[in-house]
Nucleic acid binder design. Sequence first.
DNA 1: GGGGTAACGATAGTCATTCTACGTTTTCCG
DNA 2: CGGAAAACGTAGAATGACTATCGTTACCCC
Lengths: 139, 139
Amino acid sequence: MTTMNRAAPPVPGRRSTKQRAAVANLLEQLDDFKSAQELHDELRKRGEGIGLTTVYRTLQSLSDAGEIDVLRTDTGEAIYRRCSAHHHHHLVCRHCGHTVEVEGPAVEKWTDRVASEHGFSQVSHTVEIFGSCADCIRR
Amino acid sequence: MTTMNRAAPPVPGRRSTKQRAAVANLLEQLDDFKSAQELHDELRKRGEGIGLTTVYRTLQSLSDAGEIDVLRTDTGEAIYRRCSAHHHHHLVCRHCGHTVEVEGPAVEKWTDRVASEHGFSQVSHTVEIFGSCADCIRR
DNA sequence: GGGGTAACGATAGTCATTCTACGTTTTCCG
DNA sequence: CGGAAAACGTAGAATGACTATCGTTACCCC
């Protein structure tokens, strides 16, 4: 088997660079969902030399790899966040972006049941809760 | 009270026109979520003289009035559909767009409970299920 | 440390959506 | 009815998020 001299895959998007580290690192520190542009601004502010294109590209590949979660604001803008590995949903403050990860086995079962009742397969679902967090209400 | 000589509100967006009727009418006939552009194309195809801007504006006001549902594809594009009045969610085929309205009291209760547990108020939620419908699987 | 190549990044698109400017219709009160 | 203002409708320009292009840079493996 001469074709298998290495285990490492030739999959693109894996070379480690300063820029990728910077993006991953920033996401690690943040707790709320941020847009690509916000992340880019923050990185520049911190003195990282990084282009907007690269930020988009990196976020794309991170989300493809399932390492970050993406969701859309009501204006259609994509926002990103480093999340825990297991399946979960979000409770997001629509004012400050403060995010809480939540789980609901009942919801998972419900979606599976509903989908199969209607003959749907290969099912995925989005469940996001938006509201005003206690802090924002106080103001 | 001279300031109240009329009860009718100065709220814009309520005048009945041929174009609005055409949009509302088309939505009435369709069963699946469509983008503004698709709706516009269809209207032109049917010989309705209507501009894209008007379609957008009409969809906007219809959705403000709660008469149609809006959701976003994973590319961020807004898609619209005439729906029943009561609260419900959607089971959408990601291939053909075929849509089924579904209800889940358990989900409603769950979201309310989770939100209040974390001190969130004024809560709304999105629950959409995407999958492949039986017809599309057969191919 | 050299070379092949993935990754970068400035710039120029693309695409959905919104704004602008202006002509047209509707409404409403006399 | 008549006439004026409010609301509409339209084409085209502008916006803003995101993506493709392509010459340059810098990783990584030898």
